[in-house]
Simulated assay, not measured.
Amino acid sequence: MSASSPLHRRGLIAAVSAAALAASVLAAVPATARPLENVMFDEMDSFTDTDFCGAGLTVEVDSTSKVHILFNSRKPGAAPYFKANVVADTVYTGPGGVVTEHVRIVDKDLRITDNGDGTMTILVLATGNAAVYDESGTAIARNPGQVSYEVLVDYGDDIADPSDDEFLEFLGEVKGSTGRSDDFCAAVLPILG
């Protein structure tokens, strides 16, 4: 799964929105609770993309996601670890046809390093599968595999309290995609257009 591919980026966006929700919920949770958060929820979104894949094509996008978030403290006084399981189905409807994308992703913190300056570097593993299907149900693009990447986070006053954490920067891929990475736009534009 390539972190730079459109298929993977949509999955990460879902996981990031889930993380934002978790952070807002965590503000009221005591720092000593184990796990800090264990929630499941569904999300739905619909919008019109007037420049789909940068091709000037207008496409209706309808998505549903099932998200499971686990935020767990491994030891007192240490940063809690985050894990999100996301299953998303998205239907793209263009003037020429319809395609459906099914994404299943797990994003989880592998290692958290306190940088000693009020920030922490988090090594994240993103693994899963994305597949795009035409109207007959035939797979036209796939993106399985995994990547690992690092992010920089300001942890505020207390590394063990995630309620005031602030994302600072995406530090880049540590390990690139281990799987095939089909070009989403190249696969769907001939059908949708």
Score class of each variant (00 low, 15 high):
residue 54 G to Q: 08
residue 35 P to G: 03
residue 36 L to F: 01
residue 45 D to A: 12
residue 32 T to N: 11
residue 30 P to Y: 04
residue 34 R to T: 07
residue 28 A to L: 06
residue 39 V to L: 14
residue 47 F to P: 00
residue 36 L to V: 01
residue 30 P to G: 06
residue 28 A to P: 00
residue 54 G to A: 06
residue 45 D to F: 01
residue 40 M to D: 14
residue 41 F to E: 02
residue 50 T to Q: 13
residue 34 R to A: 02
residue 32 T to K: 09
residue 36 L to M: 09
residue 44 M to S: 15
residue 37 E to L: 15
residue 52 F to M: 08
residue 51 D to P: 05
residue 31 A to R: 11
residue 47 F to K: 09
residue 41 F to S: 06
residue 30 P to E: 08
residue 32 T to Y: 10
residue 47 F to D: 03
residue 49 D to F: 03
residue 42 D to F: 10
residue 50 T to P: 06
residue 37 E to P: 00
residue 28 A to C: 04
residue 39 V to W: 05
residue 53 C to H: 05
residue 30 P to V: 04
residue 39 V to E: 12
residue 31 A to I: 14
residue 33 A to E: 13
residue 44 M to E: 14
residue 36 L to E: 06
residue 48 T to A: 07
residue 56 G to R: 09
residue 39 V to C: 07
residue 50 T to E: 13
residue 47 F to E: 03
residue 57 L to F: 00
residue 38 N to H: 15
residue 28 A to Y: 03
residue 37 E to H: 08
residue 34 R to I: 08
residue 44 M to D: 13
residue 29 V to M: 05
residue 51 D to A: 11
residue 33 A to C: 01
residue 27 A to R: 10
residue 51 D to V: 03
residue 56 G to W: 06
residue 30 P to K: 04
residue 56 G to N: 09
residue 41 F to I: 01
residue 49 D to A: 11
residue 56 G to A: 06
residue 48 T to M: 09
residue 42 D to W: 07
residue 46 S to H: 09
residue 56 G to E: 04
residue 40 M to T: 11
residue 28 A to E: 12
residue 28 A to I: 00
residue 35 P to F: 04
residue 30 P to R: 05
residue 56 G to C: 07
residue 35 P to Q: 04
residue 39 V to D: 12
residue 45 D to Y: 02
residue 45 D to K: 12
residue 55 A to W: 03
residue 38 N to A: 15
residue 33 A to I: 02
residue 46 S to W: 00
residue 54 G to R: 11
residue 47 F to N: 05
residue 28 A to S: 13
residue 54 G to K: 07
residue 34 R to N: 07
residue 41 F to V: 00
residue 48 T to W: 01
residue 37 E to N: 11
residue 56 G to T: 08
residue 35 P to A: 04
residue 57 L to M: 11
residue 53 C to V: 03
residue 39 V to F: 10
residue 29 V to W: 03
residue 48 T to N: 02
residue 51 D to G: 07
residue 50 T to F: 09
residue 41 F to Q: 06
residue 39 V to T: 12
residue 45 D to P: 00
residue 37 E to I: 08
residue 34 R to M: 02
residue 31 A to E: 12
residue 38 N to R: 14
residue 33 A to S: 10
residue 50 T to S: 15
residue 46 S to E: 13
residue 38 N to L: 15
